[in-house]
Structure formats: C-alpha cells, structure tokens
Write a protein that binds this DNA or RNA. Sequence first.
DNA 1: GATGAATGAGGGTTCATTCAT
DNA 2: GATGAATGAACCCTCATTCAT
Lengths: 196, 196, 196, 196
Amino acid sequence: MNDSGQSAGSSARSKRKDARRNQQALLDAAAEVFVSSGVDAPVRDIAARAGVGVGTIYRHFPTRADLVIAVYRHQVDACAEAGPALLASSPTPHAALVRWVDLFVDFLVTKHGLATAMQGDSTCFGPLHTYFLEQLLPVCTQLLEAAAASGEIRSDLDAYPFMRGIGNLCVGADSDPHYDARRLVALLVAGLRQPQ
Amino acid sequence: MNDSGQSAGSSARSKRKDARRNQQALLDAAAEVFVSSGVDAPVRDIAARAGVGVGTIYRHFPTRADLVIAVYRHQVDACAEAGPALLASSPTPHAALVRWVDLFVDFLVTKHGLATAMQGDSTCFGPLHTYFLEQLLPVCTQLLEAAAASGEIRSDLDAYPFMRGIGNLCVGADSDPHYDARRLVALLVAGLRQPQ
Amino acid sequence: MNDSGQSAGSSARSKRKDARRNQQALLDAAAEVFVSSGVDAPVRDIAARAGVGVGTIYRHFPTRADLVIAVYRHQVDACAEAGPALLASSPTPHAALVRWVDLFVDFLVTKHGLATAMQGDSTCFGPLHTYFLEQLLPVCTQLLEAAAASGEIRSDLDAYPFMRGIGNLCVGADSDPHYDARRLVALLVAGLRQPQ
Amino acid sequence: MNDSGQSAGSSARSKRKDARRNQQALLDAAAEVFVSSGVDAPVRDIAARAGVGVGTIYRHFPTRADLVIAVYRHQVDACAEAGPALLASSPTPHAALVRWVDLFVDFLVTKHGLATAMQGDSTCFGPLHTYFLEQLLPVCTQLLEAAAASGEIRSDLDAYPFMRGIGNLCVGADSDPHYDARRLVALLVAGLRQPQ
DNA sequence: GATGAATGAGGGTTCATTCAT
DNA sequence: GATGAATGAACCCTCATTCAT
C-alpha cells in the first residue's frame, strides 16, 4: 500500500516490519495497562492503548496468558538466570535463597494483579502458570536443595508449594498499604530455617 | 402481633417458619453452590438450586456479601469463640495460637473461594471482609499478644497482616492437590518464633 | 384477638372497623407518597408508609387507578360541584369558565404526576381517566356552552379535547420552575375568545 | 489510511459502508419501533427488529437519547432551518410563526412518544432534550420576537415555555382520535394575539 | 381479612471472541 | 495482516402481582 510499485518480497517484508512494530506496541501498551488496571484489564483497553484493533491482539496472542507471558518474559527469564548467579556469589545458599525470593517478590508485587494471575485455579491462565513454573521451578528447586544441603533449612518442602505460597502472599499487596507482602514472605522463609 | 396468645402466635410463627425454611434452603443451596462454583457464583444458580426465584434471594440477602456472611456466620463465630477457649486450655499461648490458626485455615480451605473473597481488593465484599475482621481480628490479636508476652514469638507483627497472609496462603488450596496450604501456614507461624 | 371472649358479631364488627381504619390509613399514606414520588410510586412504598402489607392495598384497590381515584375523589367531586356554583355566582359565563379552569389546574398541578396519569395513553389508568371524565366532562361542557351561548367564546371546541389540553399543559409543571402551566392555560383559554 | 489511493480508500470505505448500512438498519428499525411502541421501547426489541445484537446498538448509540436524536435529527434540523425561511417568505411574522408551529406539531405528533420524551422531567433523555432546545429554541425565539415586534402578538412569553406548552399539548395525540393536538395548539397561538 | 414472602418476567449493560472486509 | 463491527451469552437488579398462612 505504502510503497506502490514494489516487488512482492518487499511488500512482504514491510508487512513483517509492520507486524513486529505492532507486536512491540502491543507489549508496551499491555505492560502499561497491566500496571494501571491489572492483568484482567479488558482486551479493548489494551488494544486502544496500543492503537490497534482487538483482532490484532488475538492474532499475536491467542490467549490472554500468552500476552502476559510475553510482557513479563524478560523479567521472568532474568529471575531464572539470577538463581545460579546468586548461588555463586552469596556467602551461603540460604543467603542466595533469601535474595532470590526478594527478586521474585518484587516482580510479583510490582505487577498489579500478576500474583493473582499466577494462582492455580484460574483456568485461562494455564499457559502463564506453566511458563512461570517451567522457568522458575528448577531454579527455586536448586536454591532450596542447596540451602537444605548446607543444613540451613529443612529439606521437606518442595519448590512448587513454596513458590505458590510466595505468590499467594503477594496477592493484593499493591492495593493495601497495611499489608506488607515482603514481611510475610520473610517470615515464611524464616519458618524454613532448620530448627537448630 | 407479639401477643402470647397461642393461635395468633402459632400463625405468626408458622408464617415465619415458612420463610425461615426458605431462608434455610437458601443458605444450604448457597453453601453447596459456593463449594462447587465459588462465592462469585451467579445469583440465579443459587436461586435455582434452592428452588426459589431470584427475588427471594434479594429479599433475604440484599447483597451477595450478606449471603456469604450468613452462610458462614456460624463458623466464623465459632472460630472467634474458640480463641479464648484455646488460650485457656492450651499449655502455652503459642500452642493456642497454632491450634487456632488451624481452625481458621480449615475454615478458609474447605470453602471454595472464601479465601479469595476475604482479599481486600474486592469492593463488593466489603461487608463480608468487615464482618470477618470484626469477629476475628480481636481474637487473633489476643492470641498474638499472649504468645508474644510469653516470649514465644516476636511481637512485631500485627494481627491484620498476619490474617491476610494466612488468608492468601489458603487461596486456591482446594483446587490443587499439590498445594498444601496448612503446611505453608505452619511455616509462616514457625517463622514467628522468637529467634532464640 | 384483642377482645378475647367476645361474640362473633363483635368480632366481625371489629374486623370491619379494622378494615376501615386500614383503608383510611392507606388513603392518607397514598396521598403523601403521591405528593413526594408521584402517582407511579412503587406499591410497596405506599404499603410501607401506611404500615400495611401490599396485599391489603390490592384488596381495597385492585387497580392503581382505583387508589388514585379514591385519593382524589373529594377534590374531583368538589371541582365538579364548583362548576354550576361558579356559573351562578359569576358576572359572565366566561368568568365562571376562567375560574373553574383555575380550580382544575390547581388540582392537577399540585398533585405530583396526576396530570401525567390523566393522559389518555396510559392503559393502566383507564378507570381513573374514566372517572375524571365522567365527573368533570358534563360540568366543563356546561361552562363552555354557556360561554359560547353568551357569545364570549367560540363554540366549536368540545369539552373533552379542551380538558385533555389543559391536563397536558399541566404535565411536568411541578418539577420545572421555568414552566408556568397556569400561564399557558390562560393563553389557551384566551385563544377561545370570540374573534370579535 | 486517509490516502487518496483507490484500493485502500475503497477498502476503508467499504468497511465503513458495512457499518453505515448497519447503522442505517438500526435507525430504520428504531424509527419503526418508536412508532409502534414509543421511544421507551426495550433496547432488545429494536435490536431484534434491526436484526442485530444488542451490543451493536450500544456501540453506535451509547445512550437511548443518542439513538432518538439520531433518528429524528434530520427532522429537527429541518424544523430549525425552516424558521428563517418561513420568516422570509411569509406575508407577516405571525403567519410564519403559525406555519412553523405547524411543522413542529407535525413532527411531535407523528412520532409516537416523542412529545413525552421532550418533557423536562425525564432524566435519561437529557441529551435529547438538550439537543431539541439547542436547535429549536433560537429559531422559535426569533419567530416570537419578530411577531411581537410587528405588534401581532404579545411580547411577554418566552420561547421555552411556549415550546414546552406545544410539546405538552402534543402528548398522546397519536393514540386518541378524539384529541386534536393541532386544534389546541392553534388555540394557544391564537391566545398570543395582541388584544387589539 | 391481613400479611408479606415468593415469583419471575422484564429491562439494562458489559465484554470476550469471531469474522467479514 | 489488520481492523473493529457485530455478536449474544451472562449478569445484575426491580417490582407488580399472586397466594399460602
């Protein structure tokens, strides 16, 4: 349309460029809307903010969860990568665990509604749930096992319930000033300590 | 109207009996539906299950929160009353606290979606939230203070965030067999222990 | 119930007394509610104000129109009776007509929503409409004919459209301070004057 | 998007054409339903008649008043434009006023329920009311002032109550064959004549 | 007779998702 | 590919009217 008289190839490329640009706009818009209205924000709001039609969202992200994943992929991945790094650089495995949990909680708390979306009962966030677990479960497991091996914490808690618990504790943390999720998560971690 | 005469009294009572029977049916139906579909279940579903019209629900329970309160009032009240009793009968305040938390968790976990409803962000459950807090906050506070006074736990956690945390940990506990809310709550309580 | 040990007759009479008392309370309550909320006020509001059940209203006044009629019967009748009296006491038939119209307008305007109820399209006010016409049409006709006979006004307007017109002009007169129904009715009557 | 190119332009236009076609269907359907059931007809009825979903109506006309305005905009505008034209082409301002009032009455009477909607008390028709007044008040004012300036009518009646009066006189005119709104409006206008 | 609980039709509104253009 | 119009199921809530007690 824009480049009249060009070859089909160029047309196709320009289309792709358009598509990619759109996808990026979508991610940016979604990130903003998620922050202001939570991850359950109406699809239309996101489309409007991105300046595209709702259909475009569905093309790029068939499921709402797909969109959420895409939006937070970088941060999830960073969180995943931080695990081994912290383990290597911290004085003890337990210290690494504490720091990593901090990262994870920051991530959940600062994203309005993400913690809720991570809850297991929501069927429409299945892929989101899955992705998070796939990325973070091994890391968390590694940290827990290391800390258990060093005798700092008990060894009878799996990473899955642990992460679920942290996720749950972060629910609603952004909307209630009287509720300090980090505090409670710290208590939970403290509860893991080996009863000397 | 309120005369002690038998006929009129019985007539009035019988009328009330009808209404009460209906109300009871409503409570039963709501309890069932809440379990199967959560406390956000459509009004009509509850009405249908109870075999009454929707208007009947609105008559008895103008607000959804009113209905939820009514459904769980006994249990909430029992939970509230258990606090002092446990304090009196347990070897230590900490033991009482642990047992009481158990009761509370049982209550939250066995009622599908109740924990979610207890979260602070839902505006339409204001009355419910309020009622729960009014009943249970003082009790929880008393238990925490007693345990703190006896030196068993730290004294810097208020009852409100504590209860919110417990409530959050119970979210989704009924739908995921891999998630053991009681375990995590136990860890949270363990985290309260005075770092000897 | 109250007079234990009385004869059936006395009981029956007391019932009637009760019924009459109820009916009066109903009329009073309805009058008040009509003023504050219009003649379309919910049935329950009236029952509540009267301190009776809704069923009682339906027993006494099967139709809302029946209730409205009953409430305003005195005033309608007074309006009807005023016609001949004014005709007899006024200097000219036209003067009598003007005064009578004043009465009628006062009646309609001071009763919130009555003018609306008098409109022909509302099917549920049929009996009301009918009663009003039955009582007032002959009177109005007489006044119009007298004024026409004396040459003061044209003779080609029937009482029915005339009254409908007046009724309509009074619609909404009580809720809009910028709208002066009496003014417009006066113009309408002025428009009747024989084009000398 | 707005480029003058043929293909894209036609594509954009064709999309709009579809929507416009639908919008037109909606306007037609609404017009019909308004005639048969009044402007208070259920949204669903209009949607059904137009063969569209209810959502489509809400998309095009967020408020019922918006729909009513759209349906009658042409006629209101025509009425507004007719004022100056009549003033220019009529022998006297009074004659122009009479003709214009005829147009206005025709408009109100032939649209079932429109007159009622024009009444001031209905809160949900605010925009409608506003639009009508904005369009027609200046015109009516001009006509009244011209006729007053020429000494044909009294000068102490504002356009607003005048129009309200006409509107009111037209209420129910379509459903009652015995009620001739035009007749009464003519009398009202006649009542304005300067008492020579 | 009186009561008021129950009914359920009726109307409004939102929003995820599809699909013609 | 992008668009956004259309769909319509799903909810909510009100209130006139009936009828068992």
